[in-house]
Amino acid sequence: MTNANGQEPLLQVNNIEVIYDKVVLVLKGVSLHVPAGGIVTLLGANGAGKTTTLKAISGLLRPERGEVTRGSIYFQGRRIDHEEPPEIVRMGIVQVLEGRGVLEHLTVEENLLVGAHTRPRGDNLQDDIEMIYHYFPSLAERRRIKAGYLSGGEQQMLAIGRALMAHPKVLLLDEPSLGLAPLLVQEIFRIVRRLNEEQGVSVLLVEQNASIALEIADYGYVMENGRIVLDGDAETLKNNEDIKEFYLGLSAVGQRKSYREVKHYRRRKRWLS
């Protein structure tokens, strides 16, 4: 499958279906593409299936007894939906888990070292660690501190930096803004943008905070109820009335609507039923 430029996307998810515990159908046909060097965002409310989509890509469904039962996932032309997580990391896809996914009892530097676990023995990791500290200077000061004692923002930075230690081609970021102050969120997203531009890492970003995600993304998908209901360029999505309504919380005149109106609107105009 090729996109408009005639190039094969780095990562392509084709119409996948995911079932948990052999009965609970969570994804009902999800397709998306991440081009090389791009930032793509996946938006949606709680429970829409965003995290499940990421875990289907990274292979982390199996320990939770989830399974890709239909469709396929290709990375650089190779089918990966039946690979084990270590192999997927080695190929260049690393997921940064939602929440504070740091190893609390390890120091900051040990966390970074574990991030390089899949790389061959004898690789020089010190340069990479310095590179991470260059992007996240506040981690450098705290390199000997146990990660559990870092602030929420620092923990998120550490989780992203640790993922970079594996030299990924695609980073899967699961709600990096969760529970962080707006200024910190701005900072983290700025760094993600820089990593994308300077290191060439592609990003698939799951967010509930649509406005900030669309700031840095080139392309976006919107999920509801286990399906993709809308997709388009970030600019197009930002100006889309439905997105404004549901994810940016704005009405046409730039004001917050009352709940009753929103509800009424929703009832009248659902994307899918």
Partner: peptide, 23 residues
Amino acid sequence: TRTGLALRAVSDNQTVALSLGIS
């Protein structure tokens, strides 16, 4: 050792360890 570090990672948080490609 490297294996020891991976073991400590697993004992800290299995899901995170798995996401980093630790088998």
